[in-house]
Computed example of a mutant assay.
Amino acid sequence: MLLRVDVPVADGLLASVPLAMGGRPSPFGLDPRDADMALRMLTDGSCPPLEFAGVHAHLASGLAAPELAAAARSVAAWADDLARRHRVPLRELDVGGGMAVDYGDPDARFDWVGYGAALARLADARPELRLRVEPGRALTAYCGWYATDVLDVKHSHGEEFAVVRGGTHHLRTPAARGHSQPCHVLPVADWPHPWPRPPGRPGPVTFVGQLCTPKDLLARAAPVPAVRPGDRVVFAMAGAYAWNISHHDFLMHPHPTVHHLDV
Rank of each mutant, 00 (worst) to 15 (best):
Cys143Glu: 13
Asp190Gln: 11
Ala162Met: 10
Tyr142Pro: 00
Ala108Glu: 03
Pro204Glu: 10
Lys154Leu: 06
Arg165Met: 07
Gly136Arg: 03
Val153Thr: 11
Leu218Lys: 09
Trp145Tyr: 15
Leu217Asp: 12
Gly203Lys: 03
Phe110Gln: 03
Ala138Asn: 00
Arg177Trp: 10
Glu159Arg: 14
Asp107Arg: 04
Tyr115Ile: 03
Leu171Lys: 01
Gly97Pro: 14
Asp107Thr: 02
Arg130Lys: 10
Pro204Arg: 08
Ser156Thr: 06
Val208Gly: 14
Trp195Pro: 02
Thr140Ile: 03
Gly203Ser: 04
Tyr115Lys: 10
Ala222Lys: 00
Pro187Cys: 13
Leu151His: 12
Thr213Trp: 08
Gly209Glu: 13
His193Phe: 15
Tyr146Thr: 13
Gly203Trp: 11
Pro135Cys: 15
Gly209Ser: 09
Arg137Lys: 12
Ala147Trp: 04
Lys215Gln: 14
Gly96Tyr: 06
Pro192Cys: 07
Val188Trp: 07
Thr173His: 14
Ala123Gly: 03
Phe207Ile: 11
Pro214Cys: 12
Arg132Asp: 09
Val208Ser: 14
Gln181Met: 13
Ala100Phe: 10
Ala100Glu: 14
Tyr115Phe: 15
His193Leu: 13
His155Lys: 06
Ala162Gly: 08
Met99Glu: 14
Val188Pro: 05
Phe161Asp: 10
Pro225Tyr: 06
Met99Asn: 11
Ala221Asp: 07
Leu119His: 13
Ala147Cys: 08
